[in-house]
Amino acid sequence: MPRPSKDPRSRHQQIAADLRARILTKDLPPGTKLPSTAQLQEEYGVPNQTVQNAVAVLKREGYADSAPGKGVFVRERPQRVVAPAAFVTPSPPGESYPWLSEAERRGLKGSIELLHVAEVVPPVQVRLAFGLGDEDVAVLRKQVMQLDEEPAELVYSYYPVDLARGTPLAEKRRIKGGTPRALGDMGFNPHEFVDQVSTRPPTPEEFVALELPPDISILRTFRVVYAEGRRPIEATVMVKAGHMYELQYHHVLTPPAV
């Protein structure tokens, strides 16, 4: 297949992509006024309407807002940084699920809507992680995580039936302290986890559930959590709006032995 010699997107999409990248790298930090229409016309060599269409894309995606009589400014909402390791271990007794605690720490109101709990035949990726056959089932807990009453993440968490059946994991109700606490109370504390991160266009379900603007990809994380002995105890698909999040991994490296 021949490699494309130029960007096939329309000019306004190209300009929006360029400005979006400058916003995400902080070259246009929150609160900064975007270059004027005349400046963008000159910079990109395009007519007024093309610039207006590009700026409309940024507004629709939540990157920019108009201030009447003053111009268009980068929104004061920075991209959210997620540290994946922070949400695997159980919360201390008496404390809420770490996702909610982290939201509060950042000055946001976090909430969780539990959509569905059932025994289902899981996707192949989950069956492989659990060592299940084609017709075997797992317990699914499907949730939407919200920040300030806006959908932030669509989560599908699966649990082996022999572990979850007859426990709070299989009940359609919120679990105090979250599912890591429930697993810990059952004697299955997380020992390690593996993340696979990818991006792709959203499915119709994801587009609606996350209230996404057009032409935005999702950030998909597939996580398998293991207890001691590398027993898989949870497999989770986490879907976030790709333009709103960055993943942050922090590892302390051990010097090689001399």
Rank of each mutant, 00 (worst) to 15 (best):
M1V: 15
P2W: 13
P2I: 15
P2Y: 14
P4E: 05
S5Q: 14
K6F: 07
K6C: 09
P8Q: 11
P8L: 13
H12V: 00
H12P: 01
I15V: 07
A16S: 11
L19K: 04
A21N: 13
A21P: 02
R22M: 11
P29D: 15
P30I: 14
K33C: 01
K33Y: 01
S36W: 10
S36V: 12
L40V: 06
E42F: 13
Y44H: 15
N48Y: 13
N53L: 09
A56V: 13
V57K: 03
L58G: 05
K59G: 06
K59D: 03
Y63P: 04
A64E: 12
D65K: 13
A67C: 11
K70W: 07
F73H: 02
R75V: 12
E76H: 09
V81A: 03
V82H: 09
V82G: 08
A83L: 15
A83G: 04
P84K: 07
P93R: 13
G94V: 05
G94D: 06
G94M: 05
S96C: 13
S96M: 14
W99T: 10
L100E: 09
L100P: 13
S101M: 07
E104F: 11
G107K: 14
K109L: 06
K109Y: 02
G110C: 10
S111Y: 00
I112L: 15
H116G: 06
Q125W: 14
Q125H: 04
R127W: 00
G131K: 05
D134L: 12
E135K: 12
A138K: 11
V139Y: 10
V139L: 14
L140I: 15
Q143I: 11
V144C: 05
V144M: 14
Q146R: 11
L147I: 09
E149K: 01
E149P: 01
E150T: 12
A152N: 12
E153D: 08
L154P: 07
V155T: 12
V155F: 11
Y156C: 15
Y158M: 14
P160R: 06
A164H: 10
R165K: 13
R165W: 05
R165I: 07
R165E: 13
P168W: 12
E171S: 00
K172Q: 04
R174W: 05
I175M: 02
I175P: 00
K176H: 01
K176C: 00
K176T: 05
K176S: 08
G177R: 01
T179H: 00
A182Y: 02
A182C: 02
A182T: 02
G184N: 06
G184P: 01
D185V: 03
M186H: 02
G187Q: 07
G187L: 06
F188H: 12
N189A: 03
P190A: 03
H191Y: 09
E192F: 07
V194G: 01
D195S: 04
S198C: 01
S198L: 06
T199W: 08
P202F: 05
T203M: 09
T203D: 09
E205T: 08
E205R: 14
E205C: 05
E211L: 02
E211P: 03
L212K: 05
I218P: 13
F222L: 13
R223C: 08
Y226P: 01
Y226D: 00
G229C: 05
G229N: 06
E234F: 02
T236I: 11
V237L: 15
V237G: 07
A241M: 08
H243Q: 11
M244K: 15
M244G: 04
Q248G: 02
H250L: 15
H251R: 12
H251G: 08
P255I: 08
P255N: 12
A257E: 15
